[in-house]
């Protein structure tokens, strides 16, 4: 079977989803299940001190026993904040070490700060974390992150939450060709065809949140994304035909067309 292996564990689904921006926990859970995703990202935030203690928590709705939770460092702009956040996540999730690292460089674009990302990754890896890392689509940054021990490279397709799709398939292709660890497109997917294109390029998986949560019908889009990722993966494995500009080739027999007076 064609499985995605992350940190020694095999997954049937190559779609990873976030859990933010949904209307409520009900919709979150229904969409996650429709996506078929087995790895889901969560954020770590301060408790709301005024909150009703009876309110359910995300971990009640998406229990770690059923999903592989991937705590992230969304919103962190410094090495220190990112590292502290993931230490808290490890404590919160009973020693869980698989994490998604992102260190942002700019609040407007949410573009990653690669220098700080490298520093944070180094510290976390030394502390025993298994780091899946959000990065730009710079092949050198991707290579350096792999060299220091990140277990998955997660380049953006376009800016986080932008839905702009895959803006630089060429860079992604270079990253995929060079990497020996899984490459997962993270951020920028807008609709199903974007996910399929990422998989056709040879990505090992796709991670998305807004494309599903901000769709008019998130649950239906989750299902569409599941199919797109599967279709894209199968197309990649099948090996597409070469593109032939100005060299048309009919699929039906050339001979025996009626009314052809030449006798052919």
């Amino acid at each position: 079977m064609d499985k995605l292996v992350i940190a020694g564990k095999a997954y049937s689904s190559r779609l990873l989803v976030g859990t933010g921006k949904y209307r409520d926990f009900d919709e979150t859970r229904t969409a996650v299940d429709a996506s078929g995703a087995e790895i889901i990202t969560v954020a770590i935030r301060r408790t709301n001190l005024g909150q009703n203690p009876e309110e359910p928590s995300l971990l009640d709705v998406l229990p770690p026993s059923q999903y592989t939770l991937l705590p992230n460092t969304a919103g962190c702009y410094t090495v220190e904040d990112a590292v502290r956040t993931l230490r808290l996540a490890r404590e919160l999730l009973d020693g869980h070490t698989l994490v998604k690292l992102e260190v942002l460089g700019d609040p407007k674009t949410l573009y990653p700060n690669i220098v700080e990302t490298l520093k944070a990754a180094e510290i976390l890896i030394k502390e025993g974390f298994q780091v899946m890392v959000y990065t730009s689509d710079d092949p050198i940054a991707a290579r350096q992150l792999e060299e220091i021990g990140c277990i998955a490279i997660m380049p953006l397709a376009s800016l986080i939450g932008s839905g702009m799709g895959i803006l630089n398939p060429w860079n992604l292709q270079i990253i995929i060709e060079n990497a020996k660890v899984p490459v997962i497109v993270d951020a920028g997917v807008g609709t199903a065809s974007d996910a399929a294109i990422a998989m056709e390029l040879g990505c090992d998986g796709v991670l998305m949140n807004t494309a599903i949560a901000a769709a008019q019908n998130p649950v239906l889009m989750a299902s569409a994304m599941k199919k797109a990722v599967e279709a894209g993966r199968e197309a990649y494995l099948a090996g597409r035909m070469p593109k032939k500009l100005y060299s048309a080739s009919p699929s039906s027999p050339v001979e025996g067309v009626i009314g052809n007076m030449s006798g052919k």
Binding site: T28, A43, L59, R84, M208, N209
Partner: peptide, 10 residues
């Protein structure tokens, strides 16, 4: 002190 929970996020 920082007291944190898991919340929805990408």
């Amino acid at each position: 002190l920082e007291i944190v929970v898991a919340v929805g996020g990408g």
